[in-house]
Write a protein that binds this DNA or RNA. Structure first.
Lengths: 131, 131
DNA sequence: CGTTACGGTGACGCGAACGTCAAGAACTCT
DNA sequence: AGAGTTCTTGACGTTCGCGTCACCGTAACG
């Protein structure tokens, strides 16, 4: 198990973010790179987390929302009391996401219709121009 | 056709937003309430737009993104040149939204699995406690 | 041994999306 | 007429998510 770690630059290139962003995420406890002297080294775990962070952002979640979700993904042998709370929270988030998915589907349908309509208008306009 | 218009307060109550938010959206040309003297009156059109605005926000779109999308929904007899551009932009947004929908579905699946796993851990913990 | 490259820590700046006064007009009720 | 409510327009404050800058360490290169 070669635990490949990435420097901050490699991490930035891999995910197309800036060093500032990674340091900021660490300060907000979203990432936990290990330290070699002063330098940060990002593990496989950090990579997985960052992937979910960037995904969550696209869904409009705040970094704090995301942090709480990430916690659920990393409970190997934690306190059961907290686990119970986290599961409840996760259920809520899950429902939110399902609603969001449904709304998104509806919005996609509507936008598709609008585009069809607009393209027909363009077609008609081209026809009129030819007259 | 009784064109029911709403005062700012009625509008706020209907959509659970603050007056400040509605005035802010007007200043950013997302809403166009008519004026009776000084007071704003929100039309059916404003209601439809606000619904889409709030929806868009949940998807993580910026207000500027949303404004451009809204334009597509309200092109009765505008300039064709702009229409063509807007349609192109809308296609891009549509693809974005489809990707987002797919990612969201995947995230929902993953989160569901995590919850299942966590609940089994809780079940096991309860069993261990009974011992 | 200087300098170039890469990484680090503050600290301040900035745009987005509002919140929060302050001060005044306009209408209603008593 | 006075008081209260609802609306208006500024204008400044705030939070989030970083960008940017200044300055420092250190390892490598010529």
């Amino acid at each position: 198990m070669t635990e490949t770690v990435l420097t901050i630059r490699e991490m930035c290139d891999a995910f197309n973010v800036t060093p500032r962003t990674l340091r900021f995420y660490e300060s907000k406890e979203l990432l936990f790179p290990i330290r070699e002297g002063q330098k940060r080294l990002f593990t496989r775990r950090d990579r997985a987390r960052l992937k979910l962070i960037l995904r969550g952002k696209r869904f409009g979640f705040s970094l704090e929302d995301i942090r709480q979700l990430l916690d659920l993904y990393e409970m190997g042998d934690q306190q059961k009391t907290q686990l119970s709370e986290t599961v409840k929270l996760a259920h809520q988030r899950l429902e939110e996401m399902k609603r969001q998915r449904d709304e998104l589907g509806q919005t996609i349908d509507e936008l598709t219709q609008q585009i069809d309509w607009a393209e027909k208008q363009l077609e008609k306009a081209r026809h009129d121009d030819a007259a």
